[in-house]
Structures are given as C-alpha cells and as structure tokens.
Design a protein around this nucleic acid. Structure first.
Length: 237
DNA sequence: AAGTGTGTCAACCGCATAAAG
DNA sequence: CCTTTATGCGGTTGACACACT
C-alpha cells in the first residue's frame, strides 16, 4: 500500500461547507465511486476514504437525519440480537440510516438502555459459501448513474453503496432470520408479519426519496434502486 | 463565571477482501 | 498465482455541546 504520496497534505477533521460543496459537485456529475480519484479532480485535500465516508454518512440524500424513532430502536435491537455487531447489515434494514449512525446509536443509547455488553464477531468470520455464487448476481447489479463510466479516473465505474446491500448480504440476513424463526412467526406473534408491518424488507434499502422515511410509510417501491429513483434523488439535492 | 464531567456523533484507523494487472 | 490498488467494515478517537458543581 502506501500509494498516497504526501500524506501530510491531506486534511483531517470536520468537513467545511466548501469541501462538502466540492465533493457534492463532483458526485453530481460523476456519481459516487473511484474515491481515490476525487481529490485529484476536485482539489480536495482529503483522502479518498474520507470522501467516501463523508458521502455515505452525511451528504448522501438517502441518509436520514435526526433522532431515531421507537420503531427504529426496536428494529435495531432485534436485528442486533440476531446479527451482532454487523452494523452494515443492520443498517441495510433500517431505511435511511447508515452503519455509522446505527453503531453510534447502539453504543450511546441502546446498549445502555438494554444494559448489554459487546457482541463481537471474530475478525476472521468466514464468508458463507453461497456468497461466491451470489457474486455473479451482484456484479450484474449496475449503478444507473455511472454504469457506462468504467475503467479509470476519467470514466467512473459502478459503485456499491453501503446503503444498498448485495443480494449475498440479503441471503445471509435471510438465512439468519429464518434460522432464528424471525420470518416464520414462531417468535411469539411477530416474525414475518412484524417485519411486514414495520417494512423490514430484505431487498435493497436504498430509498427513492426522503419523503417516506417514517418506517410505517416506507413501501417496497421506495426501496428499489433504478435510474428513476436516483434521478429523483439528484433533483432533490 | 469557571472548571469539570459526560454524552453525542463525525471522522479516523487498521484490517479484510475484492478486483485489476 | 502474486502483487498492487481500491473499497468496505467495525472499533476507536476526539471535538464539541451541554449539564452539573
């Protein structure tokens, strides 16, 4: 590694409005992805990783701001019970919330509230076997904004957003949920009905707009990534 | 008013993994 | 295959705001 020369030239800390604007302008034109090229293009004195994080956790129109609702809390607690600290998977089922938000919320509110300790997944947790076969499917999942821009910094490739989980992840979550009878209704009176009531979809959580962020209002049509949805997102910026 | 403690959350760090060459 | 590069993830840190003494 160590591809980045002149590490000290990269700014750290909170982002300024000007930096946000530069990053947004770039993403509006090229779409998210090829993060390491962004500093070169925009003049931003930030690491590509930092740009990616800023977009995913703050600037993306899919990110919901503000307090977590009771329903969201309940959902996170249930998912954490099943999945442990796999924040990206959990966040993928909480519309509009990022893994960072969920993680912070858990550590500052929910863990305290529940009086629970850490649930640590071993770093070497092996990937389920089905992931390999799912991957073909995943690679066919093109990003409508920049699908044609593959290759180098001038032509940006598709981006796999953390807000949109892969089908492999979905399969993994589904597997866990099924194993834990989460979908079969045998856990008391909840299960599939509960998930349906709370719009806990196993498909992509990427929302087409931020108008429907109330969990009870999120419909399947809002969770599908397509060019129309993304166009709408951009227009709202 | 000043100092200290605590909570919150944005951002960083290090590692793992995938993809490209 | 092996190496390099890019991206994603989870743990952790640190700045800031607010409450409390």
């Amino acid at each position: 590694m160590g591809a980045e020369a002149g590490e000290s030239l990269h700014r750290k800390g909170l982002w300024t409005e000007e930096e946000d604007r530069l990053l947004l302008d770039h993403i509006r034109v090229h779409g998210p992805g090829r993060w390491n090229c962004i500093p070169k293009f925009t003049g931003l004195k930030r690491h590509g990783k930092s740009c990616r994080l800023r977009w995913l956790n703050y600037l993306s129109p899919a990110v919901k701001r503000g307090k977590f609702s009771e329903e969201e809390d309940d959902l996170i607690v249930r998912l954490h019970k099943l999945l442990g600290n796999r924040w990206s998977l959990i966040a993928g089922r909480v519309p509009g919330r990022t893994d960072n938000q969920v993680k912070n919320h858990w550590n500052t509110h929910l863990r305290k509230k529940l009086g629970t300790g850490n649930f640590k997944r071993p770093r070497s947790d092996p990937k389920p076997e089905y992931r390999a076969q799912e991957e073909q499917e995943t690679t066919n999942h093109h990003h409508p904004i920049n699908d044609s821009n593959a290759g180098n910094c001038d032509r940006l490739p598709p981006c796999r957003s953390t807000m949109s989980n892969t089908s492999a992840d979905d399969a993994e979550v589904r597997d866990v949920l099924m194993r834990e009878n989460f979908l079969t209704g045998s856990e008391g009176s909840d299960g599939e009905e509960w998930m349906r009531d709370h719009r806990v979809w196993l498909g992509s959580p990427m929302l087409s707009s931020d108008r429907y962020f109330e969990l009870s209002n999120v419909g399947l049509e809002d969770l599908v990534i397509d060019s129309y949805s993304l166009d709408q997102m951009w227009q709202q910026l």
